[in-house]
């Protein structure tokens, strides 16, 4: 669905992403890992065209990304950004309906269908009866769930998520991961997730990409990428590797 070939991103005379290639296929989840400042967020932003690339190409369904209009891209790619601006007083329902903008008509009155989808997504995110609440009065965790609901309301096939589990308690972390996983399975959607939780990546990602100084350090299945050597190289931390007794997936524990 999304094919990235040899892209570099230069930001204020500094190259933050260098020669990165990746391919996102249907129903797949890619996890982007790396130390702070490794270029994860820049790479993610380039995937929906909000940060221009200085080199290389990004193809969405075999067509260059920059040949699509913003509306078309927003119908196909939804974003959960790290920081969401919510200074202006806006109700939760209104905020989630913003996810339906790209499906809108001239003059932009939302239809009954838009409302129904928005309400369903709120319900999925454990936010019934939040319709009229103001965004700037919510807790960090509640706001993060509204942001997820808005992304789901777009019904986009590709989700780009920048540390989506930030601010969430354990139960809602699980809920978010489950929702994203379900969306990828049942709707053949796919997702790129930035996370600092190596175990989360190991459990749920089909492919893990380790970024270091803007370059891909290692890429592939979690078992192959999350090795003691790679983690030492990228995070400069010694780890203990074993197997999660339930899922039989690789488990990473930092040694302090």
């Amino acid at each position: 669905m999304l094919k990235v070939q040899d892209i570099s991103i230069t930001y204020e005379a500094q190259t933050v992403v260098r020669d990165v290639s990746l391919a996102l296929e249907r129903s797949k989840i890619i996890a982007l890992l790396g130390a702070n400042g490794a270029g994860k967020t820049s790479l993610l932003k380039s995937l929906n065209g909000s940060l221009p690339v200085s080199k290389g190409s990004i193809l969405l369904n075999e067509k260059p990304l920059n040949e699509y209009s913003r509306r078309e891209i927003a119908q196909k790619i939804a974003v959960i950004a790290q920081e969401t601006e919510t200074k202006f007083p806006v109700s939760v329902l209104e905020f989630v309906l913003a996810g339906r903008f790209s499906h809108g008509t001239a003059f932009g009155w939302e239809t009954g269908k838009d409302l129904q989808i928005a309400r369903e997504c709120l319900e999925m995110c454990d936010l019934e009866n939040y319709d009229a609440r103001q965004m700037n009065r919510l807790s960090g965790g509640e706001r993060q769930r509204v942001v997820l609901a808005r992304a789901l309301a777009t019904q986009a096939q590709i989700l780009l998520l920048d540390e989506p589990t930030n601010n969430l308690d354990l139960a809602h972390q699980a809920m978010m991961i489950r929702l994203i996983g379900e969306r990828c399975k049942s709707c053949h959607s796919s997702a790129v997730i930035i996370t600092h939780d190596l175990n989360l990546a190991s459990e749920f990602a089909d492919e893990v990409i380790l970024l270091k100084d803007g370059k891909i350090h290692a890429k592939g299945e979690a078992e192959k990428v999350l090795t003691e050597e790679n983690i030492k190289d990228v995070f400069n931390v010694d780890v203990l590797l074993d197997e999660n007794p339930l899922s039989k997936k690789r488990r990473v524990t930092a040694i302090y």
């Binding site: 913003r70 903008f101 932009g108």
Partner: peptide, 19 residues
């Protein structure tokens, strides 16, 4: 409606399809 989205934030509005 595009202005409604931009009131929330220009970055957000861009991500959700506003030129």
């Amino acid at each position: 409606r595009a202005l409604n989205l931009m009131m929330i934030g220009e970055r957000d509005a861009f991500d959700f399809g506003v030129e």
